[in-house]
Nucleic acid binder design. Sequence first.
DNA 1: TCTTTTTATAAAAACGTTTTCACATTAAAA
DNA 2: TTTTAATGTGAAAACGTTTTTATAAAAAGA
Lengths: 348, 348
Amino acid sequence: MEKQTETESITIHDVAEVAGVSISTVSRVVNDLGRVAPETKRKVESVIRRLNFHPNSRAQALSRKRTDTIGLIVPDFEGQYFAMLMEGAHQEAQSHGVHIMVVKAKGAEEKIEAVSRLCSQGRTDGVILMLSDLYSDVLDGIGPMTKPLVVLDQDVYSWRLDNILLDNRLAAFEATRHFMDVHNVDDVFFLGGSETNVDTTARAMGFSDAVKKMGIDAAQRQFFCRVYSYDEGYRLTEKDILPLIEQGKRYGVVAANDDIACGVIDSLMDAGIYVPGQVGVIGFDDSSIASQRRLKISTMKIPTKEIGRMAVRMILDRLANKAKEPAKIVLKAELIVRQSCGCGLKKN
Amino acid sequence: MEKQTETESITIHDVAEVAGVSISTVSRVVNDLGRVAPETKRKVESVIRRLNFHPNSRAQALSRKRTDTIGLIVPDFEGQYFAMLMEGAHQEAQSHGVHIMVVKAKGAEEKIEAVSRLCSQGRTDGVILMLSDLYSDVLDGIGPMTKPLVVLDQDVYSWRLDNILLDNRLAAFEATRHFMDVHNVDDVFFLGGSETNVDTTARAMGFSDAVKKMGIDAAQRQFFCRVYSYDEGYRLTEKDILPLIEQGKRYGVVAANDDIACGVIDSLMDAGIYVPGQVGVIGFDDSSIASQRRLKISTMKIPTKEIGRMAVRMILDRLANKAKEPAKIVLKAELIVRQSCGCGLKKN
DNA sequence: TCTTTTTATAAAAACGTTTTCACATTAAAA
DNA sequence: TTTTAATGTGAAAACGTTTTTATAAAAAGA
């Protein structure tokens, strides 16, 4: 059959020819579908080994109508958060023989475009979309999905989509209550990230919830950084919180992430305030920085790796069972008590 | 042509039928190959829009013999390093309409397996392989490559492979010289990561180079952590460096990354030593932690993002021009002078 | 012994594109 | 005019699998 064998690599046809069987038989052997005589099987397997045949996954993808790839769309690669999410997602994917395709998409436009490239064009079997900003237009833009989509961070239950969330409100509530209940502070502050960020807004609400019980006005005690960063945390503390600190009173600051918390702490320290003695600080995320400072940072640990793992599993589940109702999973953060909140200080 | 149109999505055939042309014409329109009458083109385009047709990338991949995807194999997702590499790679890829598939592979076995899955099975058009440990068997295991492979971190020029490296030896030399030349220290130490790590070994050599000029023995002044971590840095400083510090003398410590540098600093401070006054510290990487501490860390900045970007470009270049000679690119680190080395202190 | 069932295999039809060829037209060159 | 070249289009052949259908041979049931 004078085929031009000078192509890039060995195909199932080559194997079939050498083994003297049909390609269907080779396929059956490769995919272990049975219905093939033991001796034939042995022969084909030996030829496969000898020719070093690897089934072409592009052809498999076309024929099987799936790619064994899951898309992961994130707003950016910064910080520990992405690494942890990736770790969990990859781990779960790997154990199911599935690959991960990562795309960074910032604005609504980009996100819609990314979902289209990954899903509509069939590059992946499903997509994990991290939506940390309030983009209802993203979901409108995406339209009805034909493939599994799980949304992270933002509550999209009303869209009837699979959803994994963190109970940010409860987490911030607990952090704030920790200051009020165990440290008996006179006042508390909240320093969030961007006000369009759903995590920050939920955390601000949790802060309010807690503060109401003290009978004080939450609005005057919460401030927002433009971005989740050390520098912003430092700056805003200097500008907004410092002027409110009075001698002889004790305070607690709930920061929306650990980077901001570091900024808060350094800003206070540079101003000569005793941290955590006079002002305690609790961060969010339990990123590596939280335990890599002299003053170990107390923080609300988010099970990010677990979120990544669950997201992949959800996609795989839905792939296996299309008809399932959309699920909404809400995870809880955990307070990791270290030094910056004031715990571990000798009682005065 | 009673096709079963209850399939998952619109194909080129549907478009052709509705527009009343052949699929070749639709393909020509979609790929903008010309040779199609203006009116026909307009008609087809309108049908495409109306039916919301997206070419199936799996079929394109099979037909075009490429996936427009590049594989990225890294040892882990920890730290800033991965995020930066990803950032650069993604940025360059995005601008060429190419996607990134990320795989984590730790041991030699896993790496070989990953290259096979990504390349031999045709899931990607080329692979970026980060080889930070001494695995000559990985390259043997991979065997001759039919697709572009660029190796990061480890010098594999003798294998005739594309290669992007950092001049770690020079970088460590410069860091060490900084202590000797501008801070006039009495002695210097090197605190590396794992001894099997190629970065660490190269940096240890650079340290030796510098130290030889002082006429002292490098071997007694270099120590190695099992992993690049804060805790190890802390522990080894306490155990190995602290006992060597004498009152009245000035020292410099070159740490193999910023995490270790933090551990060194905190360990010294906890022991009551004045940093950077008596002992200065320089880290590696310029990770975010370096500028998010009260004592800003001086560090050798590695152009990681640039490495990611160049790696993708190299793959793309080779894809465009197969015959090219393998290239070896060596990048330089840059000393970012902040506080921990002792600069910025008032002269005494 | 003659069905019927099972088993092993091959042939052929998808999967949804791109691409090569062939074949008309039409325009340009002579 | 007549030849040559360019243009617009469709048919058909890849691309390398999986999957369905068909068929022959062997085994089982009657």
